[in-house]
Design a protein around this nucleic acid. Structure first.
Length: 269
DNA sequence: AGTCACCTGATT
DNA sequence: AATCAGGTGACT
């Protein structure tokens, strides 16, 4: 699930459910999740600490602790982070969990084991996230900056959008959706796009992410009760062969960087 | 700059 | 049984 909007929803939910809770005990089922740190190291760093806050950087969730350490979770492709009433009821795909002193537990559920969980002091944290590019929902994300970043790139625009070192948080779905909204073909070279079109793309990104966050909240805040119509309404993603909602042409699927890209051959050019 | 391996689960 | 998956990083 997790691109920026899903990470945001996970983070907000954690703020509600986890702040003030004290970690009594940490368990890691898969060492790979915490590598290159060790299970012992991670456990020792969170033991006895209270959760003081949560924030997000790109697709990553950062959990602040009372002892100065920060838990950094990258949700990977299938990760989810949530609080359960009792760790013994956890799903079999839970790869790590922190039992709270009140009996509840924060679990890192990641079926595909492509996510990561690390615990850092301030210096390490800074190092771990310094490579990330601009937050697309921040004031720094101006048309001028997008223009600068794109001008320096020879990549296809879709891959450019997914490059976390330039803009942090877009993945396969929302990159494709943003390009549809801006009516830009995913294979266009970023550095060749005109200022006007990049400005349109910037606006599309902000709009798509904002909408997706709303949908993600609806889906994540109410565990178990998912209502039809609350899911993000994709215009192109996964709609191969279906009609474009703008021009009616059939949405097509192509491959870029080994991933599926969906676009409308009629109005994205 | 582009391909592939990393893992497992859900779906065809 | 085979294919596909919303992400990275390590490799040509």
């Amino acid at each position: 699930m997790p691109e920026l909007p899903e990470a945001e929803a996970v983070m907000q939910r954690l703020r509600r459910q986890g702040i003030g809770s004290t970690i009594a005990e940490m368990h890691v089922e898969r060492p790979k999740i915490v590598a290159p740190q060790t299970i012992d190291e991670v456990s020792a760093r969170v033991h006895g600490a209270t959760i003081t806050g949560a924030r997000r950087r790109g697709k990553q969730v950062l959990i602040g602790l009372s002892n100065g350490f920060t838990i950094r979770v990258h949700l990977g492709m299938t990760g989810d982070l949530y609080v359960v009433a009792d760790h013994r009821l956890r799903a079999h795909t839970v790869r790590a969990w922190a039992r709270f002193s009140d009996g509840r537990a924060l679990v890192f559920d990641d079926p595909r084991v492509l996510g990561h969980l690390h615990v850092h002091d301030a210096r390490e944290l800074e190092q771990a996230i310094e490579h990330l590019g601009v937050e697309p929902l921040s004031r720094r994300f101006t048309p001028e900056l997008v223009g600068q970043l794109a001008a320096a790139s020879k990549q296809p625009i879709k891959l450019f959008l997914m490059d976390q070192t330039r803009i942090a948080g877009l993945g396969n779905i929302y990159a494709a959706e943003s390009l549809w909204h801006a009516a830009i073909h995913p294979a266009r070279i970023a550095g060749k796009l005109r200022t006007q079109r990049l400005a349109r793309l910037r606006t599309a990104i902000v709009g798509v992410l904002t909408d997706a966050i709303q949908s993600a909240f609806a889906a994540y805040m109410r565990p178990g009760r998912f209502r039809e119509g609350e899911a993000f309404a994709a215009q192109v993603y996964g709609r191969d062969g279906e009609p474009c909602r703008r021009c009616g042409r059939k949405i097509r699927r192509m491959e870029q960087g080994g991933r599926s890209t969906y676009y409308c051959p009629g109005c994205q050019n």
